[in-house]
C-alpha cells in the first residue's frame, strides 16, 4: 500500500523554510523524487507532509564566482553533464553525474537529493568529496556551512536537521594543472546502483604529483578521502609501482574503516583494481 501524506509546493525559499520549521520531523522534502518515490510506493514514507521544493526559484542555479563554482541543490544530473562551468571547472563531477541511472533519471534527479539521501553508493558524492565541496544549510533565520564529509553520520543518515534545507553547494574550480577521473563499477553498464565508485583528482607540478585526492563510494561507512594513499603519492614522480602501492593502501584503509564483511572478499581486490585504473588515467601511467 502506498504511503499517504499531504502535499505542499512552496514558491519561495522563505516559504519553504517556514514550512520546514513548522512541521519539523513531520515533513519530508521532495525534489526529483527518484529515491523518495520508491519509498512512497513501498509504503515506507513516514511523513505527514511532502514539501515539493522544485518550484523554489532560488534553488536552481549554476554560478561561477571568481575561483569558485556554486550549484543550487535543484541542479539535475543532466544539467551538470551539459554545463560548461562544470565540464570546465569540475569535470569529475560531470562524469559522476553522467554515470547516474538513465537519461530519464538524470533529467529529474538532483544533486541536492543525491547528497541528502546519503546512500553510500551515491555517484556524485565521491566527486564532491575530492572537490572539497562545502554545503550550505539554511533554516529560518540562519545558515551554516559544512564540508561535505562532515554531513554524514552513517549510511542514509546525515546531520541535516528537519528544519534545514541544502541551499548551495560550492567548490573551488580545478581546471589549471588538475586532472581527474571518475569510474563506476556496477552489475551492468547503465541504470545500476554502483557496486563501488571512485573519484580521483590530481595536480601535477612538472613530473611530480603535487597533490592527489582519492575518494571511493560504497566502501566506507561515510564518505571520506583516502588520506594514506594520498600521502603516499604526494610529491612523488608517479610510477606503476607507486600506483600499485597506493591502490593497496586504499584497499587497506577501506577494510580498516569498514571492518571485514561478507562483501570484503570481492571489494578489497576490486577497489584496488578500480583505484589503480583511475590513478593510471589521471597520472597518465600505463601498465
Amino acid at each position: 500500500m502506498r504511503s499517504e501524506f499531504s502535499y505542499i509546493c512552496p514558491k519561495s525559499l522563505k516559504e519553504a523554510l517556514e514550512i520546514l520549521t513548522d512541521y519539523g520531523k513531520r515533513a519530508r522534502v521532495i525534489a526529483g523524487g527518484t529515491d523518495l518515490m520508491t519509498e512512497i510506493r513501498e509504503g515506507k514514507l513516514e511523513a505527514e507532509l511532502l514539501v515539493d521544493i522544485t518550484r523554489v526559484p532560488e534553488l536552481r542555479f549554476i554560478r561561477e564566482e571568481g575561483n569558485q563554482t556554486s550549484l543550487g541543490p535543484l541542479t539535475t544530473h543532466a544539467e551538470l553533464v551539459s554545463s560548461m562551468p562544470i565540464m570546465r571547472g569540475a569535470p569529475v563531477l560531470g562524469r559522476a553525474a553522467h554515470s547516474v541511472g538513465s537519461v530519464q533519471i538524470r533529467n529529474i534527479g538532483t544533486i541536492g537529493g543525491n547528497i541528502v539521501n546519503a546512500s553510500p553508493a551515491a555517484d556524485t558524492t565521491p566527486a564532491l568529496v575530492v572537490l572539497g565541496a562545502q554545503v550550505v544549510l539554511e533554516r529560518r533565520g540562519g545558515e551554516r556551512t559544512l564540508p561535505i564529509t562532515d554531513l554524514y553520520l552513517a549510511p542514509y543518515r546525515t546531520v541535516i536537521k528537519p528544519q534545514e534545507l541544502v541551499t548551495k553547494i560550492t567548490f573551488d574550480k580545478v581546471s589549471n594543472g588538475w586532472s581527474s577521473s571518475f569510474i563506476k563499477l556496477a552489475r551492468r553498464k547503465a541504470l545500476a546502483i554502483a557496486r563501488m565508485n571512485v573519484a580521483v583528482l590530481a595536480k601535477m607540478e612538472g613530473k611530480r604529483a603535487k597533490e592527489v585526492r582519492i575518494s571511493v563510494g560504497s566502501s566506507t561507512p561515510t564518505p571520506c578521502r583516502m588520506e594514506k594513499a594520498e600521502a603516499l603519492l604526494k610529491g612523488t614522480v608517479p610510477s606503476a609501482a607507486i600506483i600499485e602501492e597506493a591502490s593497496q593502501a586504499v584497499a587497506q584503509e577501506m577494510v580498516e574503516r569498514s571492518g571485514v564483511r561478507s562483501s570484503t572478499g570481492y571489494k578489497r581486490p576490486a577497489v584496488q583494481g578500480l583505484v589503480k585504473r583511475a590513478l593510471q588515467e589521471v597520472l597518465a601511467i600505463n601498465q
Binding site: L185, A270, Q272, G273, L274, K276
Partner: peptide, 15 residues
C-alpha cells in the same frame, strides 16, 4: 545453432 562470443574482462574488478 552455434554462437561465438568475444569477451573482454578486467581481471582487477571482474567486469
Amino acid at each position: 545453432a552455434c554462437h561465438v562470443a568475444d569477451v573482454q574482462v578486467d581481471p582487477n574488478t571482474g567486469e
